[in-house]
C-alpha cells in the first residue's frame, strides 16, 4: 500500500505546530497503524529527520498508552485502540490525517504525544479503595451479586486512554470519570468511600479544566472499550445521592 500521511508536528509544548505531509510506500495491509508509523519513522531517521513522536506501550489494546485522532476519529475508524487498528481498514493511495488528542487538559508535549496526567490526578482524588493489607482474601469472602459484578466489570474495562476527551466537542472527561466511579461504587469493597469518591473525583475533573457534558454521545462512540453512554447518567445519580448525604 502507498499512503499519503498528514501528521501534526510540534517540536515542544510552547512551539507552534503544523500538519506535515509524508509519503509512505510498501505498507502491508496486515500492519498495525503504529507499525505503519514505525515504518515512516525508520525512513525519517535514515533521511536524518526527526522521527514522529507518538505514545505506545503494550500494543495489545489493554494499556491505554496509544492515542491519535485518525481522519477525525479518536483511535481511527474501527472500534478499537490505535495499536489494534490495521492498515486493511484503509485504502491504497488514501490520504490519512493524524492528529494528537485535543483538549486544554491534555496539552501537547511533542508531535502526537499529549500529557494525560490530569487523568492520574482524577484517579488520585478517589479512584481507589482503602483496604487493610495482608494476604489476599478468599475470592468468595465478600459476595457480590452477579448483575453488580457485571456492571463493575463493564466499567473496569476503561483503560484511561482519553479517547472520550479527544472525541468530546467540549473536551469533557465525564465518561472516563463515570467509568471509574461506577466501577468502584457498585461494589461492597468501594462502599466506605462511595460518597466522597464521586464528589472528589467530579471536583478533581472540574479542577483540571475539562469541559462539561452536553450528552453529545461522541465519547461512547469513540471508546475502544465500549464504556456505554448511560454510565454518565449513573454517575450523575451517584453524585446527586452523595450531595444529599454529605454536608460539606
Amino acid at each position: 500500500m502507498k499512503l499519503t500521511l498528514r501528521v501534526w508536528r510540534q517540536p515542544h509544548a510552547e512551539a507552534p505546530g503544523a500538519m506535515a505531509t509524508y509519503e509512505v510506500d510498501g505498507i502491508s495491509p496486515n500492519m498495525s497503524f503504529l507499525e505503519m508509523l514505525d515504518t515512516l519513522n525508520e525512513e525519517l531517521v535514515l533521511d536524518g529527520d526527526e522521527p514522529v513522536a507518538f505514545d505506545h506501550d503494550c500494543r495489545e489494546g489493554i494499556c491505554g498508552a496509544c492515542s491519535l485522532v485518525i481522519n477525525g476519529d479518536a483511535h481511527g475508524p474501527e472500534p478499537t485502540t490505535t495499536c489494534q487498528l490495521h492498515m486493511r481498514s484503509f485504502q491504497d493511495g488514501q490520504t490519512i490525517d493524524v492528529e494528537p488528542w485535543r483538549a486544554a487538559a491534555f496539552p501537547v508535549v511533542k508531535d502526537l504525544v499529549v500529557d494525560r496526567s490530569a487523568f492520574d490526578r482524577i484517579i488520585q482524588s478517589g479512584g481507589y479503595i482503602s483496604a487493610p493489607t495482608g494476604t489476599a482474601p478468599d475470592a468468595h469472602a465478600t459476595p457480590v451479586p452477579k448483575p453488580d459484578a457485571d456492571f463493575a466489570f463493564e466499567h473496569a474495562e476503561c483503560i484511561g486512554c482519553g479517547a472520550c476527551v479527544a472525541a468530546c466537542p467540549n473536551g469533557s472527561a465525564m465518561l472516563f470519570t463515570s467509568a471509574k466511579v461506577n466501577h468502584l461504587n457498585v461494589l461492597p469493597q468501594g462502599a466506605p468511600e462511595r460518597e466522597t469518591r464521586v464528589l472528589d473525583m467530579v471536583a478533581a475533573m472540574d479542577e483540571e479544566g475539562f469541559g462539561g457534558c452536553t450528552l453529545a454521545g461522541e465519547c461512547a462512540t469513540a471508546c475502544p472499550k465500549g464504556i456505554p453512554l448511560p454510565s454518565i447518567a449513573a454517575m450523575n445519580k451517584e453524585w446527586l445521592r452523595a450531595t444529599r448525604k454529605v454536608r460539606r
Binding site: R6, N71, G72, N170, S172, G211, T214, L215, E218
Partner: peptide, 22 residues
C-alpha cells in the same frame, strides 16, 4: 467552560453529534 476546554479543533473535521445536539 466547554469552549475553553477545547481551544484548538481538529484539522480533519467531521460532522459531529445530532443536529438537535449541535
Amino acid at each position: 467552560r466547554d469552549i475553553r476546554a477545547r481551544p484548538s479543533g481538529y484539522v480533519h473535521r467531521k460532522p459531529r453529534a445530532a443536529y438537535a445536539t449541535r
